[in-house]
């Protein structure tokens, strides 16, 4: 007998959907806060991916946490949240505190390292991590391990030689690597027509003899499904995949950017209407996966969680100046 007021048991897909929705909300709230902290002069720099949440969270939930390798790029707050990095840990990086688990304050914000989750720090230099992903996948293959690497980047990165060299290398060796492109239509100010004369990044896959697919990057379930399939294919040894998730960033490129210089308010408004979080919320409410009350409570809880994390991270100690000299070379014991 099911009692009133007691949550009914959830099916597995429902649990997954609720988890993804929560991660999307948390990623958004955390990102909004990071930008606000910069605007208030409390953080030197911020880079975030509001608008990319479906692409990031949907794909990250298709990974095997702790087994698969993840090479995120600077926009991927949602990927890290989905992998389980806490808001406090992400904020320690934003504030460049001694306790920043990614780098002890050495790296720019949102350039994560997290060995337990096999996250390796990315290069600020565009596309340099694509060859790394190919190399990690090469190692997995040589060692006969059933690991997959997923590397994230923007469409602008596909103009770099490193993109082409990495995809070609991975294709030749049939490596277990998913090249995941978050195509938001802009590379800082430059619209994608200035980067490529093909319509879709996925079209580039043909030139290397691998499968490329385009997906609505604001539809978390579609992204999840395609990522699942691609990662499974890789795990079965069927070679690399290129995924292009079409999306839009709802914020400036970074805290140093003024996006009014290159895109219109009307265009932004169009995309705000397609906000991936609003879309997913409507669906979950419609399907009865969650109730409006549950949604409100969840949002309230996330706001509080992030506010508490900000408080605690901002008060954490700064790195000691003499620490600047450490870790140039591996010390005894690494």
């Amino acid at each position: 007998m099911v009692r009133v007021n007691e949550p009914r048991p959830r099916t597995a897909p429902e649990k997954l959907h609720r988890a993804m929705y929560r991660d999307m909300l948390l990623s958004r709230e955390l990102s909004d806060r990071m930008f606000a902290l910069n605007r208030q002069g409390r953080a030197a720099f911020a880079v975030t991916g509001q608008g990319h949440e479906a692409a990031q969270v949907g794909s990250a939930h298709a990974l095997r946490r702790g087994t698969d390798w993840v090479l995120p790029y600077y926009r991927d707050v949602g990927v890290l949240v989905a992998l389980g990095m806490t808001p406090r840990d992400i904020l320690l990086g934003l504030f460049a505190k001694a306790g920043d688990p990614a780098s002890g304050g050495r790296q720019m914000p949102c350039h994560w390292s997290w060995p337990e989750m096999r996250v390796v720090t990315r290069s600020s230099v565009i596309a340099a991590n694509l060859p790394h992903a190919a190399g990690i996948a090469y190692a997995s293959k040589l060692r006969g391990l059933k690991e997959v690497s997923v590397v994230y980047f923007g469409e602008g990165a596909t103009s770099e030689g490193d993109f082409h060299e990495a995809v070609n290398f991975a294709a030749i060796h049939k490596l277990p690597v998913v090249f995941f492109c978050e195509n938001n239509g802009y590379a800082i100010s430059e619209s994608s027509e200035k980067q490529m004369s093909v319509l879709h990044v996925a079209d580039r896959a043909k030139g290397y003899g691998i499968t490329g697919s385009t997906v609505d990057g604001n539809d978390v379930l579609a992204v999840h499904q395609l990522s699942r399939w691609s990662i499974d294919e890789c795990r079965r040894g069927r070679g690399p995949k290129l995924i292009e998730a079409k999306t839009y960033r709802l914020v400036p490129h970074t805290s140093s950017d003024d996006d009014r210089r290159y895109r219109t308010r009307a265009e932004l408004d169009e995309w705000i209407k397609r906000d991936p979080i609003d879309r997913f919320r409507a669906r979950l409410l419609d399907e009865g996966t969650m109730t409006p009350d549950e949604d409100a409570a969840l949002r309230e809880q996330i706001k509080r969680q992030v506010a508490e994390a900000v408080e605690s991270a901002e008060r954490a100690p700064e790195p000691a100046p003499e620490d600047a000299l450490r870790h140039v070379f591996a010390e005894d014991g690494g």
Partner: peptide
């Protein structure tokens, strides 16, 4: 390598 934190 140049560290990010202002102190460093």
């Amino acid at each position: 390598p140049m560290p990010y934190s202002m102190a460093l």
